[in-house]
């Protein structure tokens, strides 16, 4: 038996076992972290309302969208295939956001849902980083993650300000 044959055999066995054990653990009650209560993660309520006219930031969402796109590249540089999969989903959301906002065809709730999904993806990327790389060994990526988080927060505020309490009809009239 050659090294390559052995490697293939071991890899195949590993894959089959991991598949079985993923299913095994998936069937079991999901373990809770020690000391954790039954807290359901809840997105923080919007606390900031910005008057669009007063700020003059009508198109500032484009800046945030571009910043998020750039930062995703930085963050996922070390995260391999899983990171790229998350990034790919986020890019889809960003494209939909931009197209919808540019053409005024995206409803407020849909826009905020997309941003919530982007925020969720950012947290997943942060979680991947936390377990794959210590902050001391990958400081640049952690800084990029922080900037990504800020950019998403800004995007959310900008979109919120863009819509205010209006619906898409109001937005189109601006």
């Amino acid at each position: 038996m050659t090294d390559e044959e052995l490697d293939r055999l071991l890899t195949r066995t590993d894959r089959a076992l991991l598949h079985a054990w993923h299913a095994e653990f998936a069937r079991m009650p999901r373990p809770a972290p020690p000391g954790a209560g039954p807290a359901e993660p809840v997105l923080p309520a919007e606390t900031v309302e910005i008057d669009l006219v007063a700020t003059g930031q009508f198109h500032s969402y484009l800046v945030s969208l571009l910043a998020i796109t750039d930062l995703l590249v930085e963050v996922t540089a070390h995260l391999g295939r899983e990171g790229r999969m998350v990034t790919s989903q986020v890019r889809g959301h960003l494209d939909r956001l931009r197209a919808g906002l540019d053409t005024r065809t995206l409803r407020r709730d849909d826009a905020l849902d997309l941003i919530a999904d982007i925020r969720s993806a950012e947290r997943r990327l942060r979680a991947m980083m936390l377990w794959e790389f210590a902050p001391s060994t990958c400081r640049c990526t952690y800084t990029a993650l922080d900037n990504l988080s800020d950019a998403i927060a800004n995007l959310r505020r900008q979109v919120h300000a863009l819509f205010g309490d209006s619906d898409t009809r109001d937005l189109a009239q601006r």
Partner: peptide, 19 residues
């Protein structure tokens, strides 16, 4: 982040440790 980290760790590592 803590919650997501825990879930990610449990989902990804429990099967690996078991194997």
């Amino acid at each position: 982040v803590e919650q997501v980290s825990w879930e990610y760790l449990a989902e990804k590592e429990l099967p690996n440790i078991a194997v």
